[in-house]
Simulated assay, not measured.
Amino acid sequence: MFSSKMRGPGSIARRLLLRRLAPQPLRRAFSSAAPARPTPESQQPDQPQPQPQRPPPPPQNIPSTATTTTNPPLIYPSAPSPHHTDLPTFLAHAARTNLDRSSTVYVGTHFEYTVLLALARYGLSLRRVGGVSDCGIDLLGTWSIPIILILTQCKAVQRPGPHLVRELEGAFVGAPAGWRGMSGGVVGLLVTEKHATKGIREALARSRWPMGFVACSREGRVEQFLWNRRAEEEAGLEGLGVGMRYVGSSGGGGQAGGTELVLTWRGKNLPFVGGEKEKTAV
Results as ranks from 00 to 15, higher is better:
13 A>M: 09
241 G>F: 10
113 Y>P: 01
195 H>D: 08
271 P>H: 09
199 G>F: 14
149 L>T: 03
239 G>D: 04
174 G>T: 02
173 V>Q: 14
73 P>M: 12
232 E>N: 06
251 G>W: 01
149 L>N: 09
107 V>S: 09
3 S>G: 12
94 A>C: 04
70 T>S: 10
25 P>M: 11
270 L>A: 07
138 D>F: 08
240 L>F: 07
52 P>G: 06
212 G>M: 06
182 M>G: 05
229 R>G: 08
171 A>T: 05
98 N>W: 03
105 V>I: 12
253 G>M: 10
87 L>W: 07
204 L>T: 02
84 H>Y: 15
110 H>Q: 05
73 P>D: 13
43 Q>D: 15
142 T>N: 07
124 L>P: 00
181 G>E: 00
28 R>S: 14
38 P>W: 12
263 L>S: 07
78 S>L: 15
81 S>V: 02
227 W>C: 03
262 V>A: 11
147 I>A: 15
72 P>I: 03
90 F>Q: 03
281 A>F: 06
191 V>E: 02
51 Q>L: 13
168 L>V: 07
86 D>F: 10
215 A>C: 15
129 V>Y: 04
126 L>E: 00
2 F>K: 14
119 L>T: 08
171 A>D: 00
231 A>F: 08
174 G>D: 11
240 L>M: 12
274 G>K: 07
91 L>W: 04
208 R>A: 11
64 S>I: 00
190 L>Q: 08
150 I>C: 15
13 A>C: 03
238 E>F: 10
122 Y>L: 15
166 R>S: 14
161 G>E: 11
78 S>D: 13
104 T>Q: 12
148 I>A: 10
69 T>F: 08
99 L>G: 00
79 A>C: 01
269 N>F: 00
130 G>Q: 06
235 A>R: 05
18 L>H: 05
211 M>G: 02
